[in-house]
Amino acid sequence: MVGAGVVEAYGVMLSASLGDSYAITETLVRAAPMIFTGLAVAIAFRAKFWNIGAEGQLLAGAVASCFVGAIPMPGYLAMLLMALAGAAAGALVALVPATLRVKFKVDDVVSSLLLNSVIYYALMALIEGPWKDTFSGYPISPPIEDSANFPVLIEGTRLHLGVVVALIAAPLCWFLISRTTLGFRIRVTGENPEAARYGGINVQRVLLSTALLSGALAGLAGVGEVGGVHFQVMSDISPGYGYSGIVVAMLARLNPLGVVPAAIFLAAVMTGAEAMSRATGVPAFLSDVIQGTALLAMLVALLFTAYRIRRVGASA
């Protein structure tokens, strides 16, 4: 892959991710779970609750919503209950590292990472065991009811209702962080827990609330994948959307409004890399490399803007 090949490859990448309206809808479908996990991480990191467990919370949300979605009931009721169940499952999972930190001083990074493995194996045990789809015999869960499938918004695409919910969730989270007392407490606790405590904020309660909120958002990412994309649970339902959420949140500088473009950017990289892989044979894992690089590059960029501000501040 040299010279013209590179240009051609990037051309394929771009046209497959943003080239026509279908490509754009595919990118949006990809972006939706990362908007949710990005919001989950952004809110958690604002409070300096180091939730690296969005992946596990997403999986828990997927499992819970799939359970509910398989129960016959009117479509919109099913969708609502799926969302509630998924959010609740994600929130409960996130509560574990937060509680361990508050009660036992367990490092939240380590516990939330380890919990990802626990949830993943639990999901695998479910779909290999009691929950295995008897019809297909594959290690996948039985599908949800057809009536519970999220409606497709544009005929001929996979653009589903969940994508719109994700796009609405971002400004809601922004409002929560910047215009509510909980958001105020989250920001102050994250910036300076000592001043927060001194100022009468119950820091432990803020951390637990943040965890519930963050986990619920990550859980919703799983709900969208079950209700709008896969209609069942399988082992690779998330290609690491939980970890991508960390990249998204950092690219957005922890601002919920910035999460949307950041998630769309990463989604475009992913869909583009897959198309490029099909066209040129370059492994699609290129998108994972780009993600890691983007995160590290963003951190360095942040550092240099911080330096500039400091220098401007000093000379003023």
Partner: peptide, 22 residues
């Protein structure tokens, strides 16, 4: 550079895993 050890570590893991698979 004195950047956040949490976030850089996650970045290094993502970068290395991506590179390994790729």
């Amino acid at each position: 550079l004195g950047l956040s050890q949490h976030v850089c570590g996650i970045g290094v893991t993502l970068f290395c895993s991506g590179l390994a698979y790729f």
